[in-house]
Simulated scan of single mutants.
Amino acid sequence: MAAVRSPMVADVGARIRSLRTAKGLTQAQLAEPNYTKAYISMLESGRTRASMKALEHIAATLGVKPADLLGGQAAPAAPQYALVEARRLMEQGRGPDAIVVLEQLEDGLTPRDQLVRLRYLGGAYNMAGQPKQAFPVVERAQRMADLLGDDEEKVRVKSVLAACYMRTYAYEDSVRLNREVVQACDEGVVNDPGFHFRRLVDLALGLSNLRQPKQALAVYERAMEISAQFEDRAYLASMYQGIAKTYHDTGDVEAAINYNQKSLQLFEELGLLDQVACALDSAAGLYVEYGNITRARETLARAARLAEEAKRDGTLASIKASQAEVLAKNDPDAAMEEAQNALKFARKVDQVDAQVRMLVLIGEIRMKTNGAAARRSFQEARQLAEER
């Protein structure tokens, strides 16, 4: 019998075996359809090191995350585990940190793990608000998936491309690709309930952005049915946030507030400060719709404190924009100064969404006294949005 390669490899194998037996699965069932019973046996006995692809497959079948297979221990000096660390950082919303890990990881990877690295790197760039850097990386991943003939990876890479389109406001392209991804999941090309769930949420969000709320809510219902099969509270919270936005678009502010509160509660329980700040930002807009300006201001003040604590300048720029928009409801003159300050900050941190919003608000305020200046502001907002 081959010797165990390292204590860490043996520990990962033992954890796979423990999770498999707790789930009531045989080695053959865990292996299907991509691997063999013999391969799972070698993993569990520590006689071989799992590839990143294998870790993703095993984690999906067991209903856990790849990082859970490591048991929270420090990753060993192996490129596959660096990939797991990068994925963990991305699950925490730490795209820039994941980029650092992935860019340093060039050597020691098999072709298939190199493909996973490219997929993660494209997703990390997009998460960090750098879709222009993400697109060429995703294109490389697509070519590599084609060369390897890996149908599952083709689907996973396509989902990253859809996310990049979403980030650049190409909602129709994003929806088209996510429909193809969801169909592939329905057909069993990717057997990963967590991935299936997340892509349904992405599809629903895209439909909502295209002002198709009925279709979006129907897709969210499918996502909720699948969510019972695994534990991903962070993405569940994101789904509730998306549902809140969809109900808001339909004019059902009460339902929107209800789902926003569900989202906020989960994010708070998970200690995700940036997401809590974002949820509070959204909640403030709903309170404005409900006519409660005072509560909206209080909510935004709390959101700003959390964004500063989390050191998320992009989120803070959005909150500052919201504060200016709320102030404009009652005091346009004071709102002008607030909007100009928010625009300055958004430019400093390169938050395009907030810049567009403030240019539009400044144009609306100026329209009463200086139509020419207002039109220039609107034109700049339009040009900025198109460039984005």
Rank of each mutant, 00 (worst) to 15 (best):
M1F: 13
V9A: 12
R17S: 06
P33G: 12
A38N: 14
G46Q: 06
S51P: 04
L55A: 11
L55N: 09
L55K: 12
H57Y: 04
T61S: 10
V64A: 06
D68F: 10
L69R: 05
L70I: 13
A74S: 12
P76T: 09
V84P: 08
R88L: 14
V100F: 02
L109M: 09
L109T: 11
L109Y: 10
L109E: 12
L115H: 07
L118I: 11
G123M: 06
G123A: 10
N126H: 04
G129S: 10
Q130H: 13
P136A: 07
M144F: 04
L147Y: 09
L147S: 14
K154E: 14
K154I: 14
K158M: 15
S159H: 01
S159C: 01
V160D: 00
R167Y: 07
V175R: 04
N178Y: 01
V181T: 08
V182S: 02
R199G: 00
L205R: 15
S208H: 03
K214W: 01
Q215N: 08
V219C: 04
R222N: 11
M224K: 04
E225W: 00
F230A: 08
E231A: 13
Y235P: 03
L236H: 03
D252I: 09
A256Q: 08
S263C: 08
V276D: 00
I293L: 15
R295D: 08
R295K: 06
E298P: 03
R302C: 14
S318N: 12
E325A: 07
E325W: 04
V326N: 06
D333K: 13
E337R: 14
A339K: 07
N341C: 04
N341W: 00
V356L: 13
L361A: 09
G363M: 04
K368L: 04
K368W: 02
K368S: 11
R376P: 02
F378I: 15
Q379K: 13
A385R: 07
